Amino acid sequence: MEKEILVSNVDKEMKIALEKYEEPKDIKRVLSGMRPTGKLHLGNYFGALKTWLKLQDKAESFFFIADWHAITTSYHDTGKLSDNTVEMMADWLAAGLDPEKSILFVQSFVKEHAELYLLLGMIVPVKWLERNPTYKEMMENLKDREVATYGFLGYPVLQAADIVIYKADVVPVGIDQIPHLELTREIARRFNNLYGRIFPEPRPYLSEAPKLPGLDGRKMSKSYGNCIYLSDSEKEINKKVRSMVTDPARVRKTDPGHPEVCSVFAYHKIFTPSEKVKELEESCRKGEIGCVQCKKELSKILNNFLSPIREKREQYLQKKGDMIEIFVEGSKKARKIAQETMEEVRKAMNFFKA
């Protein structure tokens, strides 16, 4: 991984963490989760799911739908929480997460997360939470709602509980999540120092996620309305690709293009075979291929990539009960492990046992 490229895009704390980063080699148990905030898009796939698919073949893997985390900033409107959870189930399974390889579960089905969250909250200094680099940033960005809540300030403690309750040694994260995981390590270390070693200190696993812009050239985000979803139909893909931002300086087909500023070309670099990408780049710079043709080729490639995911997704939704049962069974497996960990925690903290 090119650390020097990554470092220029992150703040001081992330730079320090990245300088220390070494990709884990002896991976035993992996854990990660996602908040159910709606259908997943290509940014979610390349930013997380693709890495999860890789890791489920390497190690014992736990992946959970973080429905409690979803209400830390959206507690005022939980009307779509249940539907979003089901949509996420379909997206995960259609993308290739395999219940035969991974334990797939729903956070709120495993009540032990809440118990450990409570206990860890007793030992975490408030100043640790206030120094969270994304706390003030999100407080600033979410001025349209009241987020100065106990739950929002303490969500890193819940995140720590999610991880250490399964004694995960590796957590796949994005660059911006490194400080959060470092806080989890500090919390685990503090608990171990106080009560005896129970929890391993989880290590980050950084995926080399490609930069995938939204339709308007900005970061792909549901809040911007610029996403390509895994569930988009062929017609929707064609329409969205036609609307994508290209080289603003290029007026006519014969004008020399600048692929480095074109969102369409950014997608070609990810989805199109490298030989073809080179050919497209040269043709664009020479004004031999127009944006319309380039978009048509991208539409075909994207639809070929998404077609099997769409089909599987629809199949799972048609048998919704069977799909939900996968997560119910996964939650039972997860809870058994969580219960074993909590027995150790209660004993270490000297709680009375009748």
Results as ranks from 00 to 15, higher is better:
I228S: 01
G214Q: 05
L212R: 08
G214K: 05
V241H: 06
I237R: 11
L230R: 03
V251W: 14
P248T: 10
K239F: 08
M220E: 04
M220C: 03
N238Q: 13
R250L: 14
I228T: 05
L230Y: 07
K222E: 00
V245Y: 10
S223H: 11
D247M: 09
I228Q: 02
S223F: 14
A249F: 12
I237V: 14
P213F: 04
D232V: 06
D216W: 06
S233C: 12
G225P: 04
I228W: 07
A249I: 12
L212A: 04
G225I: 06
R218H: 14
K239S: 13
K235S: 11
L230T: 01
R250I: 11
S243H: 08
R218T: 08
E234S: 13
M220Q: 01
V245M: 10
P213K: 06
L212W: 10
P248L: 09
M220W: 03
V241M: 08
V245K: 10
S221L: 04
L215N: 01
D247I: 06
A249E: 15
E236R: 08
V245A: 12
D232H: 11
V251H: 12
K211H: 15
S221D: 05
S223N: 11
T246R: 05
P213G: 03
L215I: 15
I228E: 07
S243T: 12
P213A: 04
E234H: 04
M244K: 07
